[in-house]
Every structure is written in structure tokens, then in C-alpha cells.
Design a binder for these strands. Structure first.
Length: 923
RNA sequence: GGGCGGUUAGCUCAGUGGUAGAGCAUUGCUUUCACACGGCAAGGGUCACAGGUUCAAAUCCUGUACCGCCCACCA
């Protein structure tokens, strides 16, 4: 074995072997365990969020696979309608072409080409992470089977009246020229103005002042509203105002939605361009005057001179005209929420259009019940509140998009505008024939469905639905959905609704909601912030030059490049070192707390890379110690206390790991394994094993070799779900020596804690040993005694038990504490001038003999005494409080009494020593 | 406006009634035959603040401050 762990040398080789030998395919037998991957964008690349999420899903999958479950981690990719279309369109534009110029068919061909070209990236990246997905079942939301599912769902929902077409106000993106759902609207707080405008009264008796943030929409006003009980305006009710810039007279109406305190207390009503106003308009039967074209320019419904102006130009012109007519009363600065498209960033315009909607309330009801009843459990549980909050106020879902890339809506129109929703054009024609009694020509609806529509079907469409097949029966419902809280509404809620509707059962039993990966400063990682880290660059390493190149090219805002360049140079002056996949994965596991924000710091990965190296070297040591040497046969019951202790500790580590996996506390599983590996197995067990391995007792050495192999082999299996590569590499080397069969650790059984024995007695002995060793090490460390220098300590006040243990563990203590010879003082015998430390009932003395500076020892003792005294004071106060003694559980009181007794013993010893050493210092 | 989080060592975070923890960073010693990506030792915290409940509060309750996220029709 190499001296240092070299991940690059093994990872890809092992993965290829796993994949080639079909290790990711679900076992024929076993309890089904299924996780559906949140499908990444087919043309996308792996980012930190994916890497984090996929690590967790893979760890769960590997854990269950080792436990004998028939695991299916279903892989697939998403067509990501708007995102993908935008990318291809940008490429076209860069090449001087346009989507419109190309036409629908040719454009779609380009998108498919782009998919073919870049579609493999994310899959290759997933492989680098060690993801044990079943590649043979990989699906794509727009492949034939899934498209069929989409059509089937659409048709069935339409038949039930749960999908309808309607002309309503929608969130319209004037740049992308498509409708969006409410969820795709980002409300951003922006600085704006509140203009107080004068609307002249029809009778010439003055004017009414309205306050607005969007003066340009005045052109579409069809009323002015005031609160019915507002005394200021009561006399005006029923009168009309003359709308400036137009010749229209519009009524002054009363509606109690108006806030009297805000602005002027009087609101202009624009039913065609504002959601609230639209509702008011419906209540009062106001006409809708649409003043915008799809790209948000003024249309033919405004005065000739203004037509064709953009919203911005329109605002300027309207304000200028009002100003010159003396109709602006006041302009206030005002913060307002501006709705922007989550993809384009464009300010959205509420626009009256024909769209398809899902009538969602009937679907939401059982979905709410499923979570309430515990059929689906959110982890952490608190997220169910967020879910309920949204589900209880859910609104119909606009599912049509005016895009080309996506599932085209299965609806056809005849010349008279009749609509036929069908599984195919042939079926639509039949419907048309039946309805009209003649042959008609049909035109298919040009729109496509919201990407999330197909995503909602993911848990069953991937398994072949609407075919009722064995896979569907076996793997639906899945066990857990692993996802970020940002898509609870977009995706989780919709899968639950559609799963219940079409499968009659929930799509998964648990939803594990993890936090979002951010950079070290807690900032969201984004290209424009220049703080993106490619997970594979952490795995493989990257030079500063290449990193700068990645971060500063292809920016939407190229002017940010210099700042990004500078920040990157500062943060990574030498680029990023290679850490290997396992270190990255372990980091993600350790970061998987219940927190919403996961701050990612490279230092953490470096720490876990060191951990890999530690494990590697421990294995190297075990190999060297066991190769070509006698090893006790497997199943030998080791007589060694130390052996029984480490096996007992291993048991506890595995229990903690099991608990971590069961409760989605991967941080705790990772910590338990780290702690055991480094601080129990390496720091103590290997050190305690050395004297035995090198000692004269051949049988004891053989038994210890067996334990070394057993613990390491078991530990590797316990670590495997989180760190698949290094564990496999080591396991393949040592499994035969450990008398374990199998060609891969992947399908080796998960270690069962119940097969390991808890041994409290062994733990007591080892704790005693540690106490003695630590006490002497402390003196050595603080007194700056060279590690090479052996000590000859004296034990004062040793009990019979202590003496017996000194004899039994002489060799171990000698090696680990650097003891030359230890002597037990007779009762009453006075030790020479020494540094001292209390262990249990006895005090260990290290004679000064010119080694120890009394002044330094005095300082050390006094510091100890002070700390000890604090504890005594606190414990005494407790015990002197009768309420504590009377009310606290008896065992707590007993513990407290024992503590204080121990402290006082230590204190007495310290006081004695201080007196002695004090004398030496004075002289 | 409504809802949900967070505030613990220099940094990043666990801990959720009974002796304040980890990793990284810091300091000293150490190149000893698994590992310097190492070993040994040390320093470092009135657990945001104020009340309350309790024998006992970082932990439970109430309030305050600051930070953050989500939802929402104050134009």
C-alpha cells in the first residue's frame, strides 16, 4: 500500500467495475427500497447542491443495499422547459439566428441536438460522485414513455373537469412571451415612487387625487375606488371623473378593500393589469381595457400618439403630460414589491390571455390529509407547516406555456374554435366527427406544459405508468424523497397530489428536507457572484488559472469579471487541491445538520481528506501487522480486555450510525464514525495493540491480529455508505485476511450492532489505563519533558485494585506513557520532590530529578486547584440546598455527592503538593 | 401584514432540563519503526438580552434586539 491515500488512482476504476458488473441494479429479492432522484436538468452540470443531495441519496441507497433491501435509486433527467429553451436561443442569437426565423420544427431539432451533445455531462459527473443509481433505468421527462404518462394525466384530468381552459389575468413575461405560474414570480422589493395624481371631476367641481406606483396604467383605468365609509369621499360616490389623456369618463365607486390610511385613500382601478383591480372590476362589473401588447408595449386601446411605447416610455410620457396639465399633486418615494420572472428577471405584466389551468383544490384536499394523518412524514417535521400553509391557500395552477420545448398540450381546435382534448390527433378527430357530424381539419394547441407538470408524475411515470407492471407494484410508493425546501411547492406538493390522484397512494413515505448549500460567507452560490465551486474541482483539484477562467467567462454581466477575479485570487491563491470524492462526500454527510443554510468551507474537506489518509494508514498498519503472521481463527473469543473494549466501542459507533441513518441525521452518523475511527481505533486501540503485537506472547498477538482485522473490516462496512471508494479499495485487500468472502463491499452485509458485545468491565479497565497514561502525559507535556525520556513514577495511595492493574497492564502503560519503572509507595512513605497528578484514589508522582522546574509545576498545580475549587463550590452549593436534596431524583443527588467526594480528594492531594513544591520554590 | 428559522469557543456548527462539545484555526513540544494529510499537550465560552417556570435552564415559557428565509392584493 502507498504511504498516502491517492483517491485519483482508485475511484474511477472502482466505479467502472461496479457499473459493469451490474451492482446498481435492484436485487431480485429483498424488501424494496426506492428513492427517486430529483431529476437534474438534462443539459445542466453538477453543482454543489446536487453533489450534497446525491451524496445523501447514495449513502441511504448503499446503506439499505447492504442491509439486504432491493434498492432502486431511480435516475433520470428533466427537460427543464424554459431554462433549456433559453440556453439554445442564446446560442442561436450569438450565431445571428433567431428562434422565430428558424421555425418551431427546426428549433426543436436544435434543442434535441443540444441535448444529445450536452446531455451526458451530468450523468458522467454523477458517476464521479460514486452515485449508485441504476443507469439501465435512466429516464428523461420527454422520452416516449414519460410523454405518454403526461398525455394520459392531462386527458384524464380534463375528462374530470380538473383541467380547464380559461381567459384570465396571468403573470405574463413580456421578454419570454409566455405565461408563468404564481410560483415562478419573484417579488423583489425595489425603490419606486408613489405618484399622487389629480383626476378632474366630471362636473368641473375640482378633482379627486389617486395614488399610484404605475401611472402609465392610467390609460387602462375603468374606475376610481374609495372606502365606503371614508367621509372625505362620501359625497363623490356615484359621480364620475374625466380620465386624463383619454376622453373617458369613469365612475367613482365604493369598495372596502381600499385602505383609507394609504396614499390618498383613493385608488385607480385597472382591471386588465392588476390582480386586485381585476377582482374589484368583477365585483363592480367594470370593463377590462387591455392596453398592452404581449411584449408590453402600448396597444391600439390607447390614444394614437402613445401606441408602441414601452412601459418605461409610457410612464415618462404620461407623467410629462400630467405635469404640464398640472395634474400631479405630489410625488413620494416609495418601496414596492416588483414581480419579476424567475428566469428572465423581467418585470411581469398581469395580462389577459387564454391559458390552461389545473383546478387544484380537489387535488389538494387529500394531499393535505395525507400529511396530517402521517402517511407522509416531513423530516424535520416543521416543514409540514410550510406545506400546509401553502396547500391551504392554494390557487389554480396555470400549466400552459407559450414555449416550444416541452410537452405539447394534447388539445386540438376546429375552425369554429371547439376544443378536443385527446390522447392523439386521431382520437381528437373522432371526437370532432362525433360532435360536428362531419370531417373537420384540426389544429393542435401550440402551447406546451409547465415543466413541473411532468415532474409531478415522476414517482410513477418513471416506473412505466400508465402500464400496470411489476416495477410499479414493487417500487411505488418510494421510501423517501430527498430534496431542498426551495421546491416543496413546485415539486413535493404536486407529486403528492398527483400520486394520490393517479396511484391512489402517496408517492413516498418520508420527505427529508435538507438545507441549501451556500459559500463560506453564507451567500448563495451563483455565477454572477463568482463564488461557484464545481464539486469535481474539489475532487480533482484545479489550478488558479483554470478556476479564474471558469469563473469569469460566460458571465451575463461581463463587467463583474475583475471583481470576481480579485476575490478568487484572494480566496484561492494556489487554486484548489485535490481532495478525492470520499472526502467531499464525508464533508456533505457531516454538514447535513437540520440547519437551513449549509455553509461550505474547503477547510472542512481538507479535514476529511486527512481522515481518509488516517484510515488508509490504519489499514496499512493492520496489513503490515497481519500479513504472513499467525492470526487467531475467526470467532475466537478474545481474552484481551483491550480487544473486548474496542469491540464494545465499535458496537456503540454502529448503533449511533444506525440511529443517524434512521433519523436522517447524517451529521451524527458521520461524527460517530469519525470519532471511533480516529480517536478510539487509531489513537488508542492501535497504540495499545502495538506492545502485544511485538510482545512475546504469541497467542495474545494472534488474537490481537484477529481483532485488528475484525474491527477494521467491520468499520469499513460501516463507513462504506458515506465513503464508498476508499472502503472498497481497502476492503478488497483485507477481506480475505479477515476471513470475509464476497467480491465487493457494496453487497457485504451491513454490520449489525447486536452481534457485538457491550463490555462495561473492559471499558472500566481501559478508562483506568487512559487515566494513568493521560496524567503522565500531561506532566510530560506541561513540563516539557522529552518524549524520549522515560519516567519512573511513584504511585501514592494506590488501592489493591490499582496495584493489580499496574501489574496486569505494565507493558501497555510502559509503552504508552513512557514509563521506565513504576513503583508503588508503601503506606506512609513520603515521595521525593515531584510533579504530581491525581488518578482516582491515588496520586502519581514524577520525581523532579532536575527534569522539572518547581516554579512551573507550582503554577500548573495552582491552576488545577483553582478549577477544582470552582467545581467544589458549585457542587457544595447544590448539596447544601435542601430543595435540591429533597426534590431532585435520588440518583442525581448521589452522583453529585460522588462528584464532590472525588473533587475533594483531588483537592487534598493538590494542596499537599502545592505546599511541598512551594517550599522548593522559596528555597 | 402573516408564517418559519437563527443568535453556543477566533471561524463553521452539534448539543434541547442535571459536570458546556466537535472540526478548523491558535500556542508549546515532537521528524519515535501506520500516518507531519501525523503524534502529545495546552489555551479559548457570563450559550444575544430581559423576565418567568423549576431543586436545577444553553435546553421549557414570555418578551426584546439583531440577522435570515418563505408567503401575501396596501394601490
Amino acid at each position: 500500500m502507498d504511504k498516502a491515500y491517492e483517491p485519483a488512482a482508485i475511484e474511477q476504476r472502482l466505479y467502472r467495475e461496479w457499473e459493469a458488473s451490474g451492482r446498481f441494479v435492484p436485487a431480485a429479492a429483498g424488501t424494496p427500497y426506492c428513492i427517486m432522484i430529483p431529476p437534474p436538468n438534462v443539459t445542466g452540470t453538477l453543482h454543489m447542491g446536487h453533489a450534497f443531495q446525491d451524496t445523501i441519496m447514495d449513502a441511504l441507497t448503499r446503506y439499505h443495499r447492504m442491509r439486504g433491501d432491493a434498492t432502486l435509486w431511480q435516475m433520470g433527467t428533466d427537460h427543464a422547459g424554459i431554462a433549456t429553451q433559453m440556453v439554445v436561443e442564446r446560442q442561436l442569437n450569438a450565431a445571428g439566428e433567431t428562434r422565430a426565423g428558424l421555425g418551431r420544427e427546426a428549433f426543436l431539432k436544435r434543442v434535441w441536438e443540444w441535448k444529445a451533445q450536452s446531455g451526458g455531462t451530468i450523468s458522467q459527473q454523477l458517476r464521479r460522485l460514486g452515485a449508485s443509481v441504476d443507469w439501465q433505468r435512466e429516464r428523461f421527462t420527454m422520452d416516449e414513455g414519460l410523454s405518454q404518462s403526461v398525455t394520459e394525466v392531462f386527458v384524464r384530468l380534463h375528462e374530470e373537469g380538473l383541467i380547464y381552459r380559461g381567459k384570465r389575468l396571468v403573470n405574463w413575461d413580456p421578454v419570454l412571451l409566455t405565461a408563468l405560474s404564481d410560483l415562478e414570480v419573484l417579488a423583489t422589493e425595489e425603490e419606486g415612487h408613489l405618484w399622487h395624481l389629480r383626476y378632474p371631476l366630471e362636473d368641473g367641481s375640482g378633482h379627486l387625487v389617486v395614488a399610484t406606483t404605475r401611472p402609465e396604467t392610467l390609460l387602462g383605468d375603468s374606475a376610481v375606488a374609495v372606502h365606503p365609509e371614508d367621509e372625505r369621499y362620501r359625497a363623490l360616490l356615484g359621480k364620475r371623473v374625466r380620465l386624463p389623456l383619454t376622453d373617458r369618463l369613469i365612475p367613482i365607486i365604493a369598495d372596502d378593500f381600499v385602505d383609507r390610511e394609504f396614499g390618498s385613500g383613493s385608488v385607480k382601478i385597472t382591471p386588465a393589469h392588476d390582480f386586485t383591480d381585476n377582482e374589484v372590476g368583477q365585483r363592480h362589473n367594470l370593463p377590462l381595457i387591455n392596453i398592452f401588447t404581449p411584449d408590453a408595449r402600448l396597444n391600439e386601446n390607447v390614444p394614437q400618439a402613445l401606441r408602441g411605447l414601452t412601459r418605461e416610455q409610457a410612464r415618462e410620457r404620461v407623467l410629462a403630460e400630467l405635469e404640464s396639465a398640472g395634474l400631479i399633486e405630489r410625488i413620494d418615494k416609495h418601496k414596492l414589491m416588483v414581480p419579476r420572472g424567475d428566469r428572465s428577471g423581467a418585470i411581469l405584466e398581469p395580462l389577459l390571455t387564454d391559458q390552461w389551468y389545473v383546478r387544484i383544490a380537489p387535488l389538494a384536499e387529500p394531499a393535505i390529509a395525507a400529511v396530517k394523518s402521517g402517511q407522509i412524514k416531513f423530516v424535520p417535521e416543521n416543514w409540514s407547516k410550510t406545506y400546509f400553509e401553502w396547500m391551504n391557500n392554494i390557487r389554480d395552477w396555470c400549466i400552459s406555456r407559450q414555449l416550444w420545448w416541452g410537452h405539447q398540450i394534447p388539445a386540438w381546435y376546429d375552425a369554429d374554435g371547439n376544443v378536443y382534448v385527446a390522447r392523439s390527433e386521431a382520437e381528437a378527430l373522432m371526437q370532432a366527427r362525433r360532435k360536428t357530424g362531419r370531417e373537420v381539419t384540426l389544429t393542435r394547441d401550440a402551447d406546451v406544459l409547465d415543466t413541473w407538470f411532468s415532474s409531478a408524475l415522476w414517482p410513477f411515470s418513471t416506473l412505466g405508468w400508465p402500464d400496470q407492471n411489476a416495477d410499479l407494484a414493487r417500487f411505488y410508493p418510494g421510501n423517501v424523497l430527498v430534496t431542498g425546501f426551495d421546491i416543496i411547492f413546485f415539486w413535493v406538493a404536486r407529486m403528492i397530489m398527483f400520486g394520490l390522484k393517479f396511484m391512489g397512494d402517496v408517492p413516498f413515505r418520508e420527505v427529508y428536507v435538507h438545507g441549501l448549500v451556500r459559500d463560506g460567507e453564507g451567500q448563495k452560490m451563483s455565477k454572477s457572484k463568482g463564488n461557484v465551486i464545481d464539486p469535481l474541482d474539489i475532487v480533482d483539484g484545479i489550478t488558479l488559472e483554470a478556476l479564474l477562467q471558469k469563473r469569469t467567462t460566460g458571465l451575463m454581466q461581463p463587467h463583474l469579471a475583475p471583481a470576481i477575479d480579485k476575490a478568487t485570487r484572494k480566496q484561492f491563491p494556489n487554486g484548489i487541491e485535490a481532495h478525492g470524492t470520499d472526502a467531499l462526500r464525508f464533508t456533505f454527510a457531516a454538514l447535513a445538520t437540520q440547519s437551513r443554510d449549509i455553509r461550505f468551507e474547503l477547510g472542512r474537506v481538507a479535514g476529511y481528506r486527512n481522515f481518509c489518509n488516517k484510515l488508509w494508514n490504519a489499514a496499512r498498519f493492520v496489513t503490515m501487522m497481519t500479513t504472513d503472521k499467525p492470526v487467531a481463527p475467526p470467532g475466537t473469543v478474545s481474552a484481551s480486555v483491550v480487544d473486548r473494549w474496542i469491540l464494545s466501542r465499535l458496537r456503540e459507533a454502529i448503533l449511533a450510525t444506525d440511529e443517524g441513518f434512521a433519523g436522517y441525521r447524517f451529521d451524527m452518523a458521520a461524527t460517530a464514525l469519525y470519532e471511533f475511527t480516529w480517536h478510539e481505533f487509531c489513537d488508542w486501540y492501535l497504540e495499545l495493540a502495538k506492545p502485544v503485537l511485538q510482545g512475546d506472547d504469541v497467542e495474545a498477538a494472534a488474537a490481537t491480529r484477529r481483532t485488528l482485522l475484525t474491527v477494521l473490516e467491520t468499520l469499513l462496512r460501516a463507513l462504506h455508505p458515506i465513503m464508498p471508494f476508499i472502503t472498497e479499495e481497502i476492503w478488497l485487500r483485507i477481506a480475505p485476511a479477515a476471513s470475509v468472502g464476497g467480491d465487493t463491499i457494496m453487497t457485504a452485509p451491513w454490520p449489525e450492532a447486536r452481534r457485538l458485545r457491550a463490555d462495561a468491565d473492559a471499558a472500566q479497565d481501559v478508562d483506568w489505563m487512559k487515566g494513568v497514561i493521560l496524567a503522565l502525559r500531561q506532566i510530560r507535556g506541561e513540563m516539557d519533558i522529552s518524549p524520549a525520556r522515560k519516567l519512573s513514577p511513584l504511585a501514592q495511595g494506590a488501592t489493591a485494585g490499582d496495584i493489580e492493574r499496574f501489574t496486569r497492564y505494565e507493558a501497555l502503560l510502559g509503552r504508552l506513557a513512557g514509563i521506565d519503572e513504576l513503583r508503588v509507595l508503601a503506606p506512609g512513605e513520603t515521595p521525593p520532590a515531584s510533579a504530581a497528578s491525581v488518578v482516582g484514589d491515588m496520586t502519581l508522582h514524577v520525581p523532579m530529578q532536575g527534569l522539572i522546574d518547581p516554579a512551573v509545576e507550582l503554577t500548573r498545580l495552582k491552576r488545577k486547584q483553582e478549577k477544582n475549587q470552582q467545581e467544589i463550590t458549585r457542587a457544595r452549593a447544590k448539596l447544601e440546598n435542601p430543595n435540591f436534596v429533597n426534590h431532585a431524583p435520588p440518583e442525581v443527588v448521589v452522583t453529585e455527592r460522588e462528584r464532590i467526594a472525588q473533587f475533594e480528594k483531588v483537592n487534598a492531594s493538590l494542596a499537599r503538593q502545592i505546599e511541598i513544591v512551594q517550599g522548593l520554590v522559596v528555597n
